[in-house]
Lab assay of single mutants.
Amino acid sequence: MGSVRTNRYSIVSSEEDGMKLATMAVANGFGNGKSKVHTRQQCRSRFVKKDGHCNVQFINVGEKGQRYLADIFTTCVDIRWRWMLVIFCLAFVLSWLFFGCVFWLIALLHGDLDTDYKDDDDKSKVSKACVSEVNSFTAAFLFSIETQTTIGYGFRCVTDECPIAVFMVVFQSIVGCIIDAFIIGAVMAKMAKPKKRNETLVFSHNAVIAMRDGKLCLMWRVGNLRKSHLVEAHVRAQLLKSRITSEGEYIPLDQIDINVGFDSGIDRIFLVSPITIVHEIDEDSPLYDLSKQDIDNADFEIVVILEGMVEATAMTTQCRSSYLANEILWGHRYEPVLFEEKHYYKVDYSRFHKTYEVPNTPLCSARDLAEKKYILSNANSFCYENEVALTSKEEEEDSENGVPESTSTDSPPGIDLHNQASVPLEPRPLRRESEIGSRR
């Protein structure tokens, strides 16, 4: 089982795998120059863009038009607004034209077009017409509009002379109601789609790998820009990579689940303020055997998904993003964004995407760390350097704002901070800030 798991979770494809794949392509008759073999020097295209759209195009789909027309309502909801407006206008105009032609044909076959009612006051002739005051196609078209929109100006009306005319008036009224219901329903469904809710759900630009509770963890940050909550919010993550099976089958995008606390339930989050999602790199993680150097040379993509129900409509929305291997910062942490004021908490989104480097973060893999092949620094050293990194950030910001350097908390000259780390230190809580992250 261990060997199978290692093969499945191998992220960085070796040169031997690339040569094996190329040999397979030639042997199977696919070596026509169009096949692409992804190596370390040639990274694959992003499968999920940063804005959440999937970078996929469908080609050679059989009976595409028929399949889309069979699900016309979903098609109308998914198309762009400009095409929705075109369909909206065409549906009414074509129905008016169709029934206008029908009423014109009825008048033509009944002989109503030969009668001039402007110079004739004989009401008996008017009563013999199928539709009064309809003696041309324009008049028939206007009567069709008046019937379907129930305008009723009063000059044109159907008589009991022709039952077919009466039937067409009733039929057009029913068709008009159906068109109204369909168009209004599609427009309302399109307006109520929770897709735009994703514009106020954000992911951090970069993911980070750092120590948390004595273990290497992959972390990324999510935030909600609205005050309205995302009900039943939960997160998922998958690692996408290519691999070759033991039988020699090439899988271009193998999807591997990344555990973010599904078993323990901590994948469900209360997204009021930005939260750091934590994936513990343990023996079940696809990143277990990867060191910093392996991450730098790897070719994979981590897709992160945030799902929840919109509070206003109770409709489920899904926000997506992805991180390539070069977008994962090893040995970094996110800057705090949640600050405790006197009577409330304040979230500073200008710090949302910012990170700071944490010294002495192990550069080895989580496996080597678990097997004690890498000796961690003293816990006080880690905490102290973590505090120094934050303090230096604040000093830089104070210097930019014009604060005198004498007010900063610099260490005395001639003292090495790293050498001082081995000395037991008193706890130094942050002056006014605390970061709330997901705790395992």
Rank of each mutant, 00 (worst) to 15 (best):
Q318S: 11
Y356L: 15
K193V: 06
G65P: 15
D116R: 10
E395C: 09
T74W: 03
N378Q: 09
C383K: 09
G18D: 07
K354Y: 06
A70Q: 11
V208L: 09
I415M: 13
Q255L: 11
D17C: 07
E283Q: 09
E15V: 04
G176P: 03
L97T: 03
R46H: 03
F203H: 04
V423H: 10
I302R: 01
P286Q: 00
H332E: 04
V26F: 03
S144K: 00
T276P: 11
K64G: 10
I59H: 14
K292F: 11
L253E: 14
A379W: 05
G261C: 13
D78C: 11
L108R: 13
F339M: 15
G414C: 05
F352N: 02
L218I: 04
E335Y: 03
F262G: 05
A186L: 04
M24C: 08
K50C: 02
G111M: 02
H279E: 01
L108W: 13
T74G: 14
E301D: 01
S365H: 00
A91L: 13
R351M: 06
T407G: 13
M168A: 11
G308L: 12
N224Y: 07
S95K: 02
V12F: 02
F171D: 00
R67Y: 04
G185V: 03
C217V: 12
I295H: 10
T316G: 09
S132I: 10
V272W: 11
A165G: 06
I183Y: 10
T355Q: 01
T39C: 08
D180E: 06
M315C: 13
L390D: 15
F99R: 00
L90E: 03
K227A: 07
K20M: 10
K354P: 00
H110I: 00
V4W: 03
C217I: 05
T313S: 08
E335I: 06
Y349K: 07
V37G: 12
L109Q: 15
S321N: 06
S264H: 09
M188N: 12
T138V: 04
H418W: 05
S321I: 12
G65C: 11
W220V: 08
S422Y: 10
K354L: 13
S291H: 10
V48M: 08
K373V: 07
C101D: 00
I174K: 01
A107W: 00
S204V: 02
V77T: 10
R8V: 06
G65D: 03
K346H: 12
N259T: 10
R5W: 03
T115A: 06
L225Q: 11
E311C: 10
S242F: 14
L109Y: 13
E301C: 03
F141T: 14
L142K: 03
C89D: 02
T138I: 04
I209K: 01
D114A: 15
H38P: 08
S434N: 05
T276R: 02
T245K: 08
N55E: 14
K118Y: 04
S408R: 10
V347F: 11
F141W: 07
M309C: 14
D116H: 12
S132Y: 03
A22G: 13
W96A: 09
I269Y: 06
P429A: 14
S10D: 15
S264C: 12
M315K: 08
F182L: 08
M211F: 06
G31N: 08
D119S: 01
Q66M: 14
T150Y: 01
K393Q: 15
K346V: 03
K196E: 08
A165E: 02
P362C: 02
D296R: 04
V231W: 13
T147Q: 03
S242N: 13
K118H: 14
E301N: 01
V403R: 13
Q255W: 09
H418D: 11
A233P: 12
F203W: 08
E146C: 02
E400A: 11
K241A: 05
L417E: 15
G52W: 00
T159I: 02
S411C: 10
I183G: 09
W220F: 08
S127N: 08
S246T: 11
R333A: 15
H353K: 00
P252A: 12
V102P: 00
R82Y: 15
N386C: 08
D299H: 08
S136P: 02
S173A: 15
N380I: 05
Y356K: 15
P336D: 15
R226W: 07
H418P: 06
A233I: 09
E247H: 12
D119Q: 01
V12M: 02
A237V: 07
I184A: 04
M19D: 06
K125C: 07
L21Y: 05
V337A: 11
S422H: 08
K190V: 03
E387I: 02
E387A: 02
R236S: 13
Q318Y: 09
S392E: 13
W96M: 10
V272N: 07
E397S: 13
Q172V: 02
L287M: 07
E405D: 11
V358K: 00
V260D: 01
S13I: 08
S322K: 01
N7S: 06
N28D: 15
L425S: 10
L108G: 11
V158D: 01
S132A: 05
E433S: 07
D78N: 08
N135P: 02
G62S: 12
S246N: 11
E199G: 14
T115E: 12
I305P: 00
H229M: 11
M168I: 05
F203Q: 02
I256R: 07
D51G: 06
I184H: 06
L225K: 14
F88C: 11
S95V: 15
S291W: 01
P359N: 12
N386F: 05
M219H: 04
S285Y: 01
F58M: 15
A325R: 09
E232M: 07
V93C: 11
F30M: 15
R5E: 15
H38D: 12
I174R: 07
F137D: 02
I79D: 12
I164T: 06
G65N: 08
N378R: 14
